[in-house]
Design a protein around this nucleic acid. Structure first.
Lengths: 354, 354
DNA sequence: TCAGAATCAGATATCGGTTTCACGAAAGGA
DNA sequence: TCCTTTCGTGAAACCGATATCTGATTCTGA
């Protein structure tokens, strides 16, 4: 590979001048600039990013650490992150942790070694000992010595910027919709017991019931793996009850889809025999049978894009100690046939603010 | 940040010794090694990957260039790539091109600048002028000066290793299945006209028809965007024909799912009125209504993992001019209710070889 | 006309590691 | 005992850029 010295020799100038030309430094005579550019093109010269980084301390690289690349949520988000990065010439290092805090920690250490200018992270959900896991995460992130943006409900470090969704409101809106349809017997298909998202959406669920003077029935509130099979299993359990609810709020769409399958298997009509609503508005929910009512997440692409923008701003920020930013995205109710049989859909909209 | 010199000073040795300890060079006395390790731990020293790369020419980083991160195929593949990389301490740079050859080219140039040790690529599908696009891609890849592994049907450069699926056989098997069920009037929902995958699967489709002495009906062979909406639109078109087929082979599952939706809207029963088979065996196809018969791709995770392994071997290969490897994965028919109404599924299996 | 400022380009130090080389000490062989 | 080999270590060169410093030249204005 050609170096800047090879180019400078060919162009008959010093390496400094070549560097100036490549960095668009105005202090170069036009004729020299042309000479250099000719040499650069003739030799197909590409400056070494490594050498550059060593001197400038900038890597032009950020990392995205996510727990589950197979969940469509994250690719969509990554897409936004990617686009925002590309627009400013940054590269994206992708790290998938498979929801394993050990692996997450290992990754962060690897990233510290290789060097990145910033980090966007959705922390993995710790299996046990949540408090300790959070502590370690915070440690690992501080070690990195770079700006961090968390996309999740809780702040990851005291300094980290935060992109989040109003999850409590999400649970509230879904439940409110079922209540507005006249349901008073409402089940809840929750995800893993220690998931923060589950916790917040349930809080909204309970708040809505409470607002209508209803008491939640613990028997109708089931935990499960936040996957299709989890929803399927939990729904089966729910339907086996002699005293079953007339509507179900699933903590996310894939669980809700699993629940739909379980309802079909039990020869129940949706929504006549049991109404189902999910959260996320994944593509599949529009074409499932029946199409799934849900609370639409505020466009993962946008969230990812915003996260990257916030991070890049922070990286280039003149003042290192500006206070942290929290950007809340709102969710939106999407009414489909899994809660309202007639196709006269009433879509309640909410403005999403930045 | 602490440097290797800070550590050497604290440990009372030279930087060379610290470097030797960190690289597990055996030529260091145990007591000195301990001294150095103590200092490293005390100072939380993390060596700079940038400085290391500059000297060693290794970045321990590979790039994955894919056309559509929102297609579940690619996250699954990326997952495998990621895991294989992690196992050997490599980082993964993700580049999503949105199927835009311009962007792909830009990315590859950016990657040349930043430096990677190798590259795994699924080329984007060029809109027009395929030959020229392929030529440019080859140029861009050669510029990179690093080993390349293509995951796609056609080799990307003369030197590149190749992971591929027998797509012709895929089309053949899907069609053969419909023929075996007695269908003689079979439609084809193709993707973009210039897609190489579409081409090969269609070749298999035609080969199967031919083997049964049937002549393909061009009116039943429709092009569309290889997405859900594309399948939906193409199916609507097909169903509007007075003389419509009794079975449909969609070039992939998402198109097939779009087709299912179109059939439901037309109040047709699947498979009684029209049978549908797709390709890919995405998660959704198992739970769609009805569950979708399909030809299962050979596990994208495995393909990604294998691609990364091949690439890493090549990167560490002692002889740079070993001939290129082509690894063919086979597909497997999965029979579900969208082609066979009774649940007595006959699953024809094929051995997948490496 | 000449001091002082502005402009441009080259020499050189530097980033933080790795690697080669040289050297002294210890070990082995005759 | 002396010479050679091996081993462990440090000094210094090096990777390929950027940034600072310096010197030469041109420009400005009193």
């Amino acid at each position: 590979m050609a170096t800047i010295y090879d180019v400078s020799k060919r162009a008959g100038v010093s390496a400094s001048t070549v560097s100036r030309v490549l960095n668009n430094n105005p202090q170069v005579a036009p004729e020299l600039r042309q000479l250099v550019m000719d040499a650069v093109n003739a030799m197909n010269f590409v400056p070494s990013g490594t050498a550059r980084s060593l001197k400038t301390k900038r890597t032009e690289r950020i990392a995205l650490v996510i727990p589950d690349i197979n969940n469509p949520f994250f690719p969509e988000m990554a897409h936004g992150v990617q686009d925002a990065c590309e627009a400013r010439g940054y590269h994206l290092i992708l790290s998938n942790t498979d929801d394993d805090p050990e692996r997450e920690s290992r990754y962060l250490k690897m990233l510290a070694k290789v060097g990145v200018d910033g980090l966007i992270i959705t922390p993995s959900v710790p299996g046990t000992n949540r408090r300790a896991a959070e502590k370690r995460l915070e440690q690992d992130l501080l070690m990195l010595q770079v700006p961090v943006v968390g996309i999740f409900v809780a702040p990851v470090t005291p300094q980290a910027d935060q992109i989040c969704v109003d999850e409590d409101l999400t649970g509230f809106r879904a439940t409110e919709h079922l209540l507005a349809l006249g349901h008073t017997r409402i089940g809840l298909l929750q995800g893993e017991a220690n998931s923060a998202v589950t916790e917040l959406r349930r809080a909204g669920f309970l708040r809505a019931l409470n607002a209508h003077g209803l008491t939640p029935n613990p028997v109708w509130m089931l935990n499960g793996h936040a996957r299709r099979e989890g929803g399927h299993a939990a729904m089966q359990q729910l339907l086996a009850l002699s005293d079953r609810p007339s509507a179900v709020f699933a903590i996310n769409d894939v669980m809700a889809l699993g629940a739909l399958a379980a309802a079909h298997e039990a020869n129940l009509r949706v929504p006549e025999d049991i109404a189902v609503i999910g959260v996320d508005n994944i593509a599949e929910s529009a074409t499932s049978y029946p199409p799934l009512s849900t609370v639409a997440m505020p466009n993962n692409y946008d969230q990812g894009y915003t996260a990257a923008q916030v991070l890049l701003e922070r990286i280039h920020a003149p003042n290192k100690n500006a206070s942290r930013r929290t950007i809340v995205f709102e969710t939106q109710l999407v009414v489909r046939a899994s809660t309202v049989s007639e196709q006269a859909k009433v879509s309640s909209r909410s403005s999403s603010e930045l």
